[in-house]
């Protein structure tokens, strides 16, 4: 598609609908974004019933989406309790959806140049292990559908499968900064719907075999700076700590 066609295509779309951003998801059971914007009356009932305070009310920076419900996966993910679809008065969240495994809020994808496990494998394949012995696997461990939605290849490399519900728990828990796993919202991978926000969500979907060619020198440098032989780290406690324990010698 030429640039001119792309621009024309974008102008033909309703600018009030379809605004996507990574890790910003509609609550579970949401119909497609365009339909959602038509149906959602901003009544905030999904926000009210959410026991995890995951669903939040969009603010001014979300433009005309202001007032609509969002799950910001990097702040607080959706824990798939399935309360919000049952209270939606207009059917913007499908009220017939009861099974959490059928939720498709989006799909997770791992940025392999940031993920600690991928960096570890890359380092190991390159032959060096100095300072790289950091294996995380948090996404695998926190996923509510471990071994279904996320699988470990070579026992080390997390791979997303198409059973991913897009709940974002892995994103919330991911220890790297910036997050090395993120959720592409449903609809963002659909060029017709997302327009300018179109993003190929299946970039490394179910493709983890070749451990060669990862980049991410910054992340490696950061990890190289971690040194066990330096000074003792200081921790802050809100209670008194003692340096010595009776009967023990260091």
């Amino acid at each position: 598609m030429s640039l001119r066609e792309k621009v024309k295509n974008h102008l033909n779309k309703n600018p009030f609908k379809g605004y996507f951003r990574r890790n910003r998801l509609r609550p579970p059971g949401a119909v497609m974004e365009e339909k959602f914007m038509e149906l959602c009356i901003r009544c905030a009932r999904c926000i009210e019933v959410c026991p995890y305070e995951s669903v939040k009310r969009a603010d001014l920076f979300d433009r005309l989406q202001i007032g609509t419900p969002y799950v910001y996966a990097d702040e607080r993910a959706c824990y798939l309790c399935m309360l919000c679809p049952s209270v939606c008065p207009t059917g913007a969240l499908d009220p017939n959806l009861k099974e959490p495994e059928k939720v498709r809020m989006g799909i997770a994808y791992i940025e392999q140049d940031k993920c600690l496990n991928y960096l570890y494998v890359k380092d190991e394949n390159a032959g060096g292990t100095q300072g790289f012995a950091m294996i995380c696997s948090t996404c695998y461990n926190t996923c509510p559908y471990t071994d279904e939605a996320i699988k470990m290849e070579q026992f080390l490399l997390p791979v997303i499968t198409d059973k991913c519900t897009g709940c974002g728990i892995c994103v919330e828990k991911c220890p790297t900064d910036p997050k090395s796993i993120s959720i592409i919202p449903a609809g963002m991978g659909n060029e017709d719907l997302a327009g300018l926000y179109y993003q190929r969500s299946r970039k490394n979907f179910k493709k983890a075999g070749d451990a060669e060619g990862y980049s991410g020198d910054d992340a490696i440098k950061k990890k190289m700076s971690i040194d066990a032989s330096g000074s003792k780290p200081e921790f802050k406690f809100d209670y008194e700590t003692t340096d010595k324990i009776d009967g023990w010698t260091e």
Binding site: I41, R42, C43, A44, R45, E48, V49, V87, P89
Partner: peptide, 11 residues
């Protein structure tokens, strides 16, 4: 959860 909602929509 006996009564829930806002003045857009209430149960």
């Amino acid at each position: 959860y006996f009564i829930k909602g806002t003045f857009y929509s209430i149960d």
